[in-house]
Design a protein around this nucleic acid. Structure first.
Lengths: 283, 283
DNA sequence: CCGTATTACGCTAGCCGTAATGATG
DNA sequence: CATCATTACGGCTAGCGTAATACGG
């Protein structure tokens, strides 16, 4: 069998054009390459080179061999990469979610139940999440619509309701019984950017919105506190006493889409693996 | 890089199930395999085996690695095979023909012009020949129809006319001016089997033919001489005094299809290579 | 106990580098 | 004479085998 190191050397020679150049690239001596190329010809049993006393070039056979060598080298490298990736994946639970809140609720449970596993989390919209779940790229996903795919296992896991926080002096503050998104037309609203599907919802339902986006959670908190801008929040944060400062009013959002139920889903074949998790969570 | 010998050993272990069995198959000692498997794990950097004190089995990673190993091994073997085949092909001129006679005329010319090349010859029908020419499996083909493919280079090279030889006592002997194939209905005719398209022609044009086929050229000659059966021949053989024995009559076959022109063809890109050949042959 | 894996130890084949030679522009 | 390929020679690593150890059905 042709050992990889021979193919590596052939490939380097094919690319570099001379033995010296290839030798330098491979951190080897010219004689070593001369020998290897001879050995290749000997093993394959056909001439691979055009030999002029002072110049070595690949002939047709050699060019073909070099092309095949490249393929084998690529595949050989792939073994290491793929097996490492597979091993990593087997030690990782990748969970995708349409929103950050249910993720914050479930990840601690996951960590506790599957000790030693790496948990990787990612946000995405329902369609993309389902696709990645079916592709095996996510082991778990949290959606805000019930999955219809029969091959999936799922369970409702929590819910969330949208609110708007405004200073009590703000014109909108009078809608204490609640407000509809379309009534926020043209309002400048402070928005944390990592909120998953909520962003799409607001963008869709509020005509001509002027969102002021903030990437950093801490900065967002400070802005929300310091500025007089309306800020979106949800019952989850309200219960945890965020944004409940004096002089602010909490306006429920009345649109039905502003109250969502979340659903945790996994592939049917992983049902057993995540049995403990599904038992822990409550709708 | 993972050397091939390591992959070979992994593959053998995956197939054999135990190190001892694999060692025997590879003509190696168990310790050698133990070391190699350890080395594989070390290089890839992930566990590939389930280790019970007395039993070694592949884990998921290992099974994946073994599968990839198989592919690399296959491709590695293919390098040698393919390059050898390519080299052989480059030293071989494969010529296909619809009939043996023009082949016998051209092959000596080929041998003389392309010294050192192996000439491989094969019979086939026009369609198959063209296909193989375009696939590069034949470098030259001899057809009995003008090729229509624009990418081909061709030239008429010879012609051949069909005759029937019958004993002068035979009822058919009176047709000395010639006979049509359909008039041979129901006749038992002695036929040499390696005559290319002629066989198809006769089978098609003679109603209810009763061919007596003979594979061996020598035996065929003897039968033709000894028996009282009608025998097909052509002007080529007649000129060479075959079948021209006493007490036999030569009947020309009158069907237009029984007089053919042959055409030598090669791929357009090989036009130069075979320039000398095309100059030598005459229509 | 026999079959299996692993460890320990010494050997050697094979791959490499250095140095020298030859060829070429 | 600078550059490239090749040959010659010696060193050393890495893969191997033998022998010994350990574990299990």
């Amino acid at each position: 069998m042709l050992e990889i190191y021979l193919l590596e050397q052939l490939e380097a020679f094919a690319r570099c054009g001379t033995l010296s150049a290839a030798a330098e690239e491979l951190h080897l001596s010219q004689p070593a390459l001369t020998r290897s190329m001879k050995k290749l010809e000997e093993v394959i049993g056909v001439p691979l080179f055009e030999r002029q006393k002072n110049k070595l070039t690949l002939n047709e056979n050699g060019r073909l061999a070099a092309e095949y060598a490249r393929r084998v080298l690529d595949q050989d490298r792939e073994i290491v990469e793929r097996v490492r990736a597979f091993d990593r994946a087997s030690r990782t639970i990748s969970i995708g979610s349409c929103a950050p809140v249910p993720l914050d609720q479930i990840v601690p449970v996951l960590s506790r139940l599957y000790v030693g596993m790496t948990i990787s989390q990612e946000l995405g919209n329902d369609d993309a999440l389902l696709e990645r779940l079916l592709a095996g790229e996510h082991k778990l996903v949290i959606l805000h619509e019930q999955p219809e795919d029969e091959s999936l296992h799922w369970k409702p896991c929590s819910s969330e309701k949208l609110f708007l926080v405004v200073p009590s002096t703000h014109p909108l503050a009078k809608h204490e019984k609640g407000i509809r998104l379309k009534e926020l037309e043209g309002q400048s609203i402070l928005l944390f950017s990592q909120i998953g599907f909520w962003y799409e919802l607001c963008k869709e339902k509020i005509p001509h919105p002027r969102f002021i986006l903030q990437d950093d959670f801490h900065t967002f908190g400070e802005l929300a506190y310091a500025s007089a801008l309306p800020v979106f929040t949800t019952d989850y944060w309200v219960k945890r006493d965020e944004y409940a400062s004096d002089g602010r009013v909490l306006l429920p959002i009345l649109d039905p889409e502003a109250s969502v139920n979340y659903y945790l889903a996994c592939a049917g074949k992983d049902r057993r693996r995540f049995k403990a998790l599904f038992e822990q969570i409550e709708a």
